[in-house]
Simulated assay, not measured.
Amino acid sequence: MPATRDRSRPPRPGPRSPIRRRGSCSASTADTCRATTCRSAAHATKSLLAIELQDNPSDTTALVPVIRRVQQNCVAAGLTGDVAAWLADSGYASTANFAELADLPLLVSITKEYEQTRVTTPPGHNVPGGHREMAARLASAEGRKLYARRGALVEPGFAQMFQRFGRRVHHRGTAAVDTEIKLLGAVHNLNKIFRHDARTRTS
């Protein structure tokens, strides 16, 4: 009889993979035995324009794929307006990225976040050659004003998802985890829409 009761119970869920935050534009998920990285791009409304799971933990190799995914998602959604500025922290800075995305209004910090947002003196003569044009953009009044908004745009998305869904995913395997985080991202966006509609009706 005890054996029959044990078999009738629903199966116990396996261990859930943790989501660890590792940077201002990214968080990490442990996928079974190897590390993968979750990165997102957020709109000024703090809605997610893209959320991606990537095998490579390097931020520099993620910037172009994430931006291309945002562009694809915007086309698919019928959003034709130009993006006013693409903001990313210093982990995404590389000469190759700046060259490939030269046609975009890109602002990527080339120094530590505190120095970029708080220190009034621009980087000195030690700026690498391939970063000097970006340094000039960031040193301008408009560049500093735009970049100062970066943390307030991307950080709340992860914080709100962690608060609502926890820091662990329920599935294992890259494909399953990627599907799960995209579902969570969609729920996050739907919540934004519902809350906006509710405020509109009551105003």
Rank of each mutant, 00 (worst) to 15 (best):
Met1Cys: 11
Ala3Trp: 15
Ala3Cys: 13
Arg5Asp: 13
Asp6Ser: 11
Arg7Glu: 14
Arg9Ile: 07
Pro11His: 07
Pro11Glu: 01
Pro13Asp: 05
Pro13Ala: 07
Pro15Gln: 00
Arg16Asn: 06
Ser17Asn: 14
Ile19Trp: 05
Arg20Pro: 01
Asp31Asn: 11
Asp31Leu: 08
Thr32Tyr: 10
Cys33His: 15
Cys33Trp: 10
Cys33Tyr: 12
Arg34Tyr: 13
Arg34Ile: 12
Ala35Phe: 10
Ala35Glu: 00
Thr36Phe: 09
Ala42Met: 07
His43Val: 08
Ala44Thr: 14
Thr45Gly: 05
Ser47Tyr: 08
Leu48Ile: 00
Leu48Glu: 00
Asn56Pro: 02
Asn56Val: 13
Asn56Leu: 07
Ser58Lys: 10
Asp59Phe: 01
Thr61Glu: 07
Leu63Pro: 03
Val64Asp: 03
Val64Leu: 09
Pro65Asn: 03
Val70Arg: 05
Gln71Leu: 15
Asn73Trp: 03
Asn73Phe: 06
Val75Asn: 11
Val75Thr: 15
Ala76Leu: 10
Ala77Phe: 06
Gly78Asp: 08
Gly78Glu: 11
Gly78Lys: 08
Thr80Ile: 13
Thr80Gly: 11
Thr80Gln: 11
Thr80Phe: 03
Gly81Gln: 15
Gly81Ile: 04
Gly81Lys: 13
Val83Lys: 04
Ala84His: 09
Ala84Gly: 00
Ala88Gln: 03
Ala88Cys: 04
Ala88Arg: 03
Asp89Cys: 04
Ser90Phe: 03
Ser90Pro: 08
Gly91Glu: 01
Tyr92Asp: 01
Ala93Trp: 00
Ser94Asp: 00
Glu100Phe: 08
Ala102Asn: 12
Leu104Ala: 05
Leu104His: 02
Pro105Asp: 11
Val108Asn: 11
Ile110Gln: 02
Thr117His: 00
Arg118Asp: 11
Gly124Tyr: 10
Gly130Lys: 01
Arg132Val: 11
Glu133His: 14
Ala135Asp: 04
Ala139Thr: 04
Ala139Cys: 08
Ser140Arg: 10
Arg149Ser: 09
Arg150Tyr: 08
Gly151Tyr: 09
Gly151His: 11
Gly151Gln: 05
Ala152Phe: 07
Ala152His: 10
Leu153Thr: 06
Pro156Leu: 06
Ala159Met: 05
Phe165Gln: 01
Phe165His: 09
Arg168His: 14
His171Met: 07
Arg172Gly: 13
Thr174Lys: 05
Ala175Ser: 14
Ala175Lys: 14
Asp178Gly: 02
Glu180Gln: 12
Leu183Tyr: 04
Leu184Lys: 01
Gly185Tyr: 03
Val187Glu: 04
His188Thr: 03
His188Cys: 01
Asn189Pro: 10
Ile193Pro: 01
Phe194Leu: 14
Arg195Tyr: 05
Asp197Cys: 12
Asp197Val: 10
Ala198Asp: 15
Ala198Gly: 11
Arg199Pro: 00
